[in-house]
Design a protein around this nucleic acid. Structure first.
Lengths: 119, 119
DNA sequence: TGAACATATGAACAGTTGTTCATATGTCAC
DNA sequence: GTGACATATGAACAACTGTTCATATGTTCA
């Protein structure tokens, strides 16, 4: 799996110049990996519903459970992933934890996705 | 797994009014599912590299294989998924098939993702 | 303190995903 | 036609994902 940059020379390909350009413009593996993780996190219906539900207002875990129609445990697990990707933030008020979208990029990502679907 | 809308009444939740609003604003399951599929398709490092490589110029399968550093077969499989989600389009020129990004939404999605990562 | 509640977490299991290998299709040049 | 080449596809398998169930944490109020 591990290859070096000069592997180009050993691999069959038609347009060496184009390949070279594309390789130079390629972001670091680490960045690509993080980006993929972000999209993958948005790539699940349950999590997408959570994100949609939080577009207008903050909600607590049991509200989200009711909106999305999965168990509170399942919602909590998903919220953990969303938190890890900084897609949502939360505040505690007594026993209740309120979740909301972390920043505006998420809403834009969501909108752009919808645009693409609808075309 | 299958639940009806009026399940709200049976599920414990704190803010019935908010839940009702969120449920009304929730897009149809079918739309959510398609959207999740789109993001999931972007949620893999190999496919993301392919998308990045195609930002500047069209490339053929063996070029992509060299840029992304996976086998041509693997690239071909991934291109099939990208095609299914209308993320890329292609044209045939003799034996060679050239791939390019299907529309501008993809580039925007990619950019917004990067923005979020960098924050 | 202890019971009740809201949420979080760990283990486990079925279902899905991405790659590899082998093989098929389609195109060109002879 | 045949052979060479570029790409596509099918089966199979390991690795990963999302849910469930059981249990733990943390907070409030009596």
């Amino acid at each position: 799996m591990i290859k070096k940059d000069n592997d180009i020379c050993q691999i069959k390909c038609i347009h060496l110049d184009k390949v070279k350009l594309a390789k130079e413009a390629m972001p670091a593996d680490e960045l690509i990996r993080k980006l993929a993780e972000l999209y993958r996190t948005m790539g699940d219906p349950t999590r997408l519903k959570i994100i949609q539900a939080l577009q207008e207002q903050e909600l607590c875990v049991c509200d989200l459970s009711a909106v999305v129609e999965v168990s509170e445990s399942a919602v909590s697990h998903q919220l953990r992933l969303l938190r890890a990707q900084k897609l949502v933030k939360f505040r505690r008020e007594g026993k209740v934890v309120y979740y909301s979208l972390d920043d505006q990029h998420i809403a834009i990502l969501f909108e752009q996705g919808l645009e693409h679907i609808k075309e």
